[in-house]
């Protein structure tokens, strides 16, 4: 079992996943923040390798990526940062980036260097399973989970495809749109998650637009994990940011843990995918 998968093996535990862009707001932010996240109840950290054209991202992560690149962040440097974090924290580290950076680095070299740095998984929003065969093979040879995404527009056919191919967990995009805080989560979210749940036993984590403890709590009732990105980045832009990170992450953790009693039931209702 991969260490990502192990996160979801604890009965009743809802995973809290947070996202940071490496190199934003400053070069040291990630090194200082990730240990804080880990000790405040975060289960997995996504580290964003900044790309010049992040077309799945909203304004917050666009700004973060742009600034990070101005600071001189490169994929090589991100691998170094991951390696440094690996000795500081125990939780799984996952890279989130766009395919061109991985392709340019070389799939084989990138996966080997990820494994060496102790990175457990990859999330690549512009790489659907149709184009991912090669990276799947190479990443799995290196013990790295390639995590695919599903969206509310995904058909049952595509749910089955992603369920069969995703490793670690499935990333459910909460709404049609780019990353970033919204006024509210869509009403159709529950029916979307349920639709996926009925077709797979893979862990399901929901991201995009989740920014408050209330929203995290709502999502935890139906999913195995919650992903918070843009809101954390906005927090890091504030004054005395590091003092605010722990209370924020703890509030999310508390929201997820309050759900403990009902969890066992929802896990039992999962079925194997129909062939």
């Amino acid at each position: 079992m991969s260490d990502i998968k192990a996160t979801f093996a604890k009965p009743g535990h809802k995973a809290l996943i947070t996202y940071l862009t490496i190199g934003y707001p400053s070069m040291d932010t990630v090194l200082e923040t990730v240990p804080l996240l880990a000790s405040s109840g975060c289960d997995i950290v996504e580290l964003g390798i900044p790309f010049s054209d992040p077309l799945a991202d909203g304004t917050t992560i666009q700004r973060a990526s742009h600034q990070a690149l101005q600071h001189g962040v490169t994929p090589e440097l991100c691998l170094k940062v991951a390696g440094k974090l690996r000795v500081k924290v125990d939780i799984p580290l996952v890279f989130m980036t766009y395919y061109n950076l991985v392709f340019n680095y070389g799939l084989d070299a990138f996966c080997k260097d990820c494994a060496r740095a102790g990175v457990s998984g990859l999330i690549i929003p512009d790489l659907p399973p149709e184009e991912g065969t090669e990276l799947e093979k190479i990443s799995s040879q290196n013990g790295i989970d390639l995590i695919y995404l599903l969206a509310p527009t995904s058909t049952d056919e595509r749910i089955d495809l992603v369920a069969a191919r995703s490793r670690g967990f499935i990333y459910l995009v909460s709404m049609t749109g780019v990353t970033g805080s919204r006024d509210k989560l869509p009403e159709e979210l529950e029916s979307f998650v349920l639709r996926v749940r009925q077709r797979t036993s893979q862990p399901l984590c929901v991201g995009f637009g989740i920014s408050t403890a209330e929203e995290a709590k709502r999502v935890a009732q139906i999913a195995d994990g919650v992903i918070v990105g843009s809101r954390l980045i906005q927090l890091l832009e504030e004054k005395d940011a590091l003092l605010k990170v722990r209370p924020f992450v703890q509030s999310l953790r508390d929201a997820l843990d309050n759900r403990v009693e009902d969890n066992s039931k929802s896990r039992d209702t999962k079925r194997r995918p129909t062939m």
């Binding site: 149709e130 599903l150 995904s154 995009v173």
Partner: peptide, 20 residues
């Protein structure tokens, strides 16, 4: 059928757009 011209082309887009 997958939209490839030799090594090139394809569909490298977010999942949300694949059905469209």
């Amino acid at each position: 059928e997958q939209g490839h011209f030799g090594l090139y082309g394809g569909k490298f887009v977010p999942e949300t757009l694949m059905p469209a």
